[in-house]
Structures are given as structure tokens and as C-alpha cells.
Design a binder for these strands. Structure first.
Lengths: 339, 339
DNA sequence: GATGCCTACTGAACCGGATAAGCTGAGCAA
DNA sequence: TTGCTCAGCTTATCCGGTTCAGTAGGCATC
């Protein structure tokens, strides 16, 4: 089966290639009648313009890049990325953009990928995840002049456009909720400590605990994996001043924490309240279902994609705030025993 | 920052564009000394060939497509796809191929995507997931002559190349293991009934149960989601002849089933044994950890990618068998109470 | 020294679109 | 009738690679 080209359409319509190009792209230069005839023929023979030819002459790739830089082990478990990707994808495909994906080992490899994509003109722009403090990718992308939207912040995004949600406010809300229930010893199992949003949450946690006069407000760091989350929980629950509530930086660690607590003979929520970050179906899967700080992640991804397309179209690189995560109370939180 | 082109390299080296092309692609036609000089200059100025120009002239896209056709809701939860993608990606990026991803609503949309990709020459081939009985994608892809590898089977893949693993053998092994422990009433919570691998597993389950003389070997169908898996479990456990063991078609449903059992006051594994399919970290996250039929999914993805690249390179479309899932016994299986 | 052959290149065509520039005939005013 | 404008096309060029058909020069051969 031969792929139709613009020349095939032109021949069938009895016009030149140029006329077909004008007609298909909504440019002036052809009459309404001719345009309609050309469009009908194009549809009839199933013509879609070669992305390569279009990319070459129009100097646009029609694709957006996403490099994921987490070890494959944690990448698989966490529903976050798949949800983000599905949202990004929905927005892109609605505008006939493709999504090019690459899994990389570290930031240097990621920068190398950006450099290659730029040289190959393979993508028109990129989405950047997992922002770190002093992130080397920011100056690299700026130097390449490759349009980008950083998913993360606020702060640390340099000249690049960004999309962020107010994690500090959400964490504060969660702590205030637990304190209102009567908790005084609250711990937190954080994600990778060098990620910027971990730092933001850690600062917010320390801040609200100080304000509310909570003494043993400790954050222990993990790597988002269930193993590490479980281990951290075991350490916390074995300490002399055992916390009555734990906030986890993702859902996987929260589920692991729940298992550890139950394994240690503690009843959730009576002996221990649990709050998860990222309200995926995983939180409703376990018993009791987990109270979670959730947000619409596909919508977040769609928003990021929309923002990136705007930057690619030449709009100024702005910093946009997305909706803040919302607390959904479920069965894993209650007043501590004796209150 | 201007992107270097092949003409820039040629000018710096004092040769023609053609010579540079030969040198970079390892073709004969240039002397070893010239080749080396050209390569050095290319590296020095950071040249990487435009994917669009290469695609246009060499009639190869340098990309492989993957269309995912599951509702975004279940797509996010299940670690399977993310693990598969990371494996596919690792293999592709090692050979400088890009992965183009698209999430679609149904098979018709998926076929439309294939048709568009084909017309746009955007991908050199595609990976096809979630094979169904009488799958309309198979003849469509065959008609387009678009190189493809079907992940699934055996059977139902038409003329297309495929990669499959022996689910029937794995399921048989799981049932025999449960029977050896003393179980006689085994149920199964299957995935979407119109998926081919669900049918294969259902047939294998019925077969081995008949062979071993198990009476109440029932399969109930679900949609892979935790909600449905939990509901199915509740139904099974409420019946008069309650099963003493349940096999789930994925890990998410198994975890949900575990929660339901515990919620109903049953002890796992004493009152109920649970076997999960797809041994993701999720299975080790819960308490007790789940006995699972696992395999190396990233390796499966890598294998599929390798196979697809071979088909793209013109090798005949063969049906390759990957390793069978292995049973990993953990805390969720034991002899039934009273044995 | 004419011939053939091989190596190491050059030059140009080509892939399939986008687009600037040029052309043509119709319509209309002077 | 001439001149002018303008819609509605056509033609040609370009994007940045790959590849095929030459071609110049060196060397062996008869």
C-alpha cells in the first residue's frame, strides 16, 4: 500500500502542490471551491502529510519530549507518572502533537538527551520533572534555547516557564487537620531529599509544627519505594516517643507504612493515623482506605502540556500555579487513642 | 545557538556533504584518515543529524510507536505498563530509536492512530498490546504493511510477528501448587474477558481443575481495577461454598482482594490463600506479602523492542516465546485451615 | 604509453512538504 | 482601448540529509 503524498493529491485535483499546501493549511491563495475539492480528495485517499517533510521545511518537529529520570524500579510502582503522561498525552494528541519518551539514568544523561533532541530537531520542546535544588538541567536548557516547561517549583526554575502547585499549603492543611483531631506527635516520611518539592514540603512541615508548638515533628527521608517507606515506618514506630500520625510523601510508601503498622500489631487509625500524598486508586484499595492529599494528576499533565505548547508558539515563559492538592479524609485518620 | 548541519561539518573538513555522510554512517567511500578527521570535527561542533532530514531521505523515522488502549484510570494503577515501557525504552535508546507514545480510547481510535502514523511516516513500526480475540487491529496493520510486534498470544496474531509467554503453563503451575497445599476450592478473578490472554488463562484454569477433579473452580471477570477486584472478592467470599484460595489476574486486584478478606475478618493465609499475577513491588508492600506469578517485565519489553527492530530491518515475522512466569511463594499462601 | 581498474572523492538529484515570488486572466476605472 | 489591481493560481527554491552517477588520480598490466 503506497502512502499518498501531496503530489498525489495535487494530481487528482488538477492543481499544483503549492495549491494543495495552501488549501490544507487554511492559508489564503485558493478559492473556497478549490479548497473544498482538495480537502475532499485528501480525505478520500487518506492523505496525511509526512511529519518528516513538514518538520524539515517548516522547522518544527510536531513532537514534545519527556525524559524520565527515576530508577526503573520506583518508576513502575508509582502511579504518578503514568497518570501524568496520560494527561499530557491527551492534550498533545488533541493538537496533533506526538509525545516522545525517554527513560534516563541521571541528570547528565538527561542533559545529553536534550542536547541530542535539540540537534536532531526531534522535539519542539520538553517537559522537565523532578526539579532539584541547583538543577543543572535548567541552565543547560536555557543555553540550548529549547522551549521547556518545568513541572515543579516555585523557585529554582531560572528563566524557564513552570507549572507548580502549592505543596506547602497542602502539607500545612494536613498537619492542621491532624492537630485538630488531637494529634501532637506527627512524623513525616519524605521522598528523595534533593528534590526541590521535598525541600519545600520539609520546610513547610517544620514551619507549621513550630507554629502549632509540636515538639517531635521529625521528617525521615526515603526514595519513594515501598521497601524504604516500610523501613522508615518501622524505625519511627519503634522509637520511644512513637508518633500517633505519619504523613507520607507518596501513596506507595503510605501503603507500605500501613502494612508495617498492622504487622506490628497497631490498629489504624486508632493507634496510628496515616495521610498519603497523591491520591491514586491505591489509597482506596487498602483497608482502611487512606486519607490522602490528592489532586487531578492527568489534569496537571494536560495543563503542563498546554503551557508548553504556548511557550513553543512563542508566548513568554511564565510561572503558572496549578490547583493545590486537596485533603480527602478517609478511614486511616482518627483522633489518637485516649482522646 | 545555531544547530550545526552536515554542510557545516563538510565546510570545516574541506570535503563535500556526501563524504561526510559516508564517513558518519560507516559506509565505504572515504579513506580512514578522512573519516577520522570528519568524525573529530562532527564531535567537536556537536553535530547530530536532523531526524527529519534523515527520515525524509532515508525513508525511516527512527522511532517506534506504542498506543495504549486502556482507560486512564486503570492505566495509572497497574505497574505493568510503566515497567514494560521502561524496558522497551532501554532497548530502543541503546539503538538510537525514539519511542512515540499515544493513549487512545478504543480499538478504532487505535487503528486511526496507526493509519496516521503510517501516513505521516512518523514511526517505523509499532508494538501492539492487549490482544483480543478477533482483534481488528491485526488485519488493519497487515493491510498497512506497517511492521509490528504483537505482545500476546499464542494465536490470534495473523501474519504479524509476536512475542508471547506461556500463561497457561504458569496458571497450571499455580493451581497445582495450591492443590499440593491441600486446597480443593479454588476461584479465580480474571481480567477483561475479551482479552485473549484472559481467555487463554480461563481455558487453562478450567482444564487443570477438571484434570485434578476440582469441582467449584469458578472464574469471575473484572476489569483489572482495584474496585472491581475487591467487589468480585466480596462476592466470592460471601458464597455458600467459599473458596479457600483465589488467583488474581493482576497485582492490583490481588491487593484489593487481600483488603476485602481482612475487612471481612478472614485471616490470610489461614482462611484464604491469595496468588497474584504480575509480581510488582506492590506484592511485597502489603502484609502478608503476596505469592505471585512474576516475570521480568522490563526484560519482556526489551525483548519485544528487539524483535520489532529485527522486523523493521526486514527479518521475517516470527512468533517468539519469552520466558514463562515463575511462581514466587510468599506469606499469602498456606494449607487451608484444618489441613 | 595506452588501457583498465580501483580508490577516494565530488556534484547533483531526490525525499515531501512550506513558502516566497512570479504569472495570468478577470474585473473595473479612466 | 489601455492600464491597474487583485484573486487565484503556478513555479521554483529551500529545508538537511542519503545516494547514485560520474570523475580525477594513482597504480598495475600488457
Amino acid at each position: 500500500m503506497k502512502r499518498p503524498t501531496i503530489a498525489d493529491v495535487a494530481r487528482r485535483a488538477g492543481v499544483s502542490k503549492g495549491a494543495v499546501s495552501y488549501a490544507l493549511n487554511g492559508q489564503p491563495g485558493v478559492s473556497a471551491a478549490t479548497r473544498e475539492r482538495i480537502l475532499a480528495i485528501a480525505t478520500e485517499i487518506g492523505f496525511s502529510p509526512s511529519s518528516a517533510a513538514r518538520a524539515l521545511s517548516a522547522a518544527t518537529a510536531g513532537a514534545v519530549g519527556l525524559a524520565l529520570c527515576r530508577p526503573a524500579r520506583t518508576l513502575g510502582v508509582e502511579p504518578f507518572f503514568m497518570a501524568l503522561i496520560s494527561g499530557v498525552e491527551a492534550e498533545l494528541s488533541a493538537r496533533s502533537y506526538a509525545l516522545t519518551l525517554q527513560v534516563v539514568a541521571d541528570h547528565d544523561a538527561e542533559i545529553a538527551v536534550y542536547r541530542r533532541w535539540w540537534g536532531e530537531r526531534r522535539v519542539d520542546g520538553v517537559l522537565v520533572c523532578d526539579l532539584r535544588t541547583d538543577d543543572s538541567r535548567i541552565p543547560a536548557l536555557h543555553q540550548l534555547q529549547l522551549p521547556a516547561v518545568v513541572i515543579g517549583g516555585p523557585g529554582g526554575t531560572g528563566e524557564l516557564a513552570s507549572l507548580w502547585s502549592d505543596d506547602a499549603a497542602a502539607l500545612t492543611e494536613a498537619v492542621e487537620y491532624l492537630v485538630a483531631l488531637g494529634h501532637r506527635r506527627i512524623a513525616r516520611v519524605g521522598g528523595l531529599p534533593d528534590l526541590l518539592h521535598t525541600e519545600i514540603r520539609t520546610d513547610a512541615f517544620a514551619g507549621v509544627c513550630r507554629r502549632l508548638g509540636l515538639a517531635d515533628a521529625v521528617t525521615v527521608f526515603s526514595d519513594y519505594s515501598g521497601e524504604e517507606g516500610g523501613r522508615a515506618t518501622r524505625r519511627l514506630l519503634s522509637s520511644a516517643t512513637r508518633p500517633t500520625a505519619v504523613i507520607y510523601d507518596n501513596d506507595v510508601m503510605a501503603v507500605a507504612g500501613l502494612s508495617v503498622a498492622q504487622e506490628m500489631g497497631l490498629t489504624v487509625p486508632d493507634d496510628l493515623s496515616i495521610v498519603a500524598w497523591d491520591d491514586s486508586p491505591l489509597c482506596r484499595l487498602v483497608h482502611p482506605p487512606l486519607t490522602a492529599l490528592g489532586r487531578d494528576i492527568p489534569a496537571y499533565g494536560a495543563h503542563a502540556a498546554r503551557h508548553l505548547l504556548a511557550v513553543i508558539a512563542g508566548q513568554p515563559a511564565t510561572r503558572v500555579q496549578d490547583e493545590s492538592p486537596q485533603l480527602t479524609p478517609r478511614g486511616s485518620t482518627a483522633p489518637p487513642r485516649g482522646k
